[in-house]
Write a protein that binds this DNA or RNA. Structure first.
Lengths: 159, 159
DNA sequence: CTTATTGCAAATAATTTGCACCAGC
DNA sequence: GCTGGTGCAAATTATTTGCAATAAG
């Protein structure tokens, strides 16, 4: 969550041109916690800058998300996918080939969450993101050796 | 993951008519681990039952998911949503009003995952699903009291 | 026989694309 | 000036809907 000057600098670092539209879109997004849609941002920005087009908003949001200046909440948004398995389990999603792999892991099925949110929680799903073995190898032919060196059988996984 | 006879019984229990199309769609879905799209299931079923229509596949999948006979992997599939906050955090999604609330909780940011999957994991996101306070109260005016009785400040959350 | 479900075609909704013009560096 | 970005309109893609015909219970 950067202020405007930091955002401008970050754009430059990423090699992105700094345009008025991008600044307005970024400002509109960071000032809210509502996780808006492209359409919502479009309406808000349009009030201040009427000539903006919805296509620009879409392109800008995708561009900023690619550069990690913002993030997309609905990641697998492309196509609805179904699963015949209704037991609690989680998914590994390959960011390259979009393959989805099941992960049945008891330890992940009893997360504790704070009650203070006021939410009545019915369940949760975890989506691990990364590269499947094939795609990881295409990317870097010896990542497996590198990762095998750390001789644990689990891996920590922060951001 | 039911066999055909169990599926038929389950449909009856849910008050769903048992149709040949439903059986074929269910069979096509449960025999694979690829988390197919409606389109993919359509093609597969069409080979055996050419008169089936894509609209039926969509309707059937949604119906079965509503009754928990299958599950939808891409839940918030409706609209792409963006977030200006790129710090690691997770989301609470209200299933009724679709509101999304951030949850910053250190304890959720260091999950361990088994390496044996061969996946090169870059991160993960957790989506808690349930009802926000307002919607929960509309649903059941005294759920807060009920839930307050269990005097912990966290709640276990399995399926 | 009554109601739920199907299948078609048409409608809708979200997102993407092509391209000419314009702006940042 | 070169390249990337914008804005428009049109195209594409996924999904939904209305409705008449049909099948399930």
């Amino acid at each position: 969550m950067l202020n405007v000057q930091e955002f401008i600098d970050a754009c430059r670092e990423c090699g992105l041109n700094v345009t008025y539209q991008r600044i307005l879109i970024y400002k509109s997004l960071v000032k809210t916690k509502t996780h808006p849609t492209a359409e919502e941002i479009y309406h808000e920005v349009k009030a201040e800058y009427p000539s903006i087009s919805l296509a620009t908003v879409y392109k800008t949001l995708e561009t900023l998300a690619e550069h990690d200046l913002i993030s997309k909440v609905t990641p697998l948004h492309d196509l609805a996918r179904y699963d015949g398995d209704t037991e609690q389990h989680h998914h590994l999603v390959c960011l390259k080939c979009r393959k989805i792999i099941d992960i049945h892991e008891e330890a992940l099925n009893n997360l504790k969450v704070p009650k203070e949110t006021g939410f009545k929680i019915e369940g949760y799903r975890i989506q691990f993101e990364g590269l499947c073995r094939q795609c990881a190898l295409e990317d870097d032919p010896n990542w497996e050796e590198t990762s095998a060196k750390s001789n644990e059988d689990t891996t920590f996984c922060g951001k």
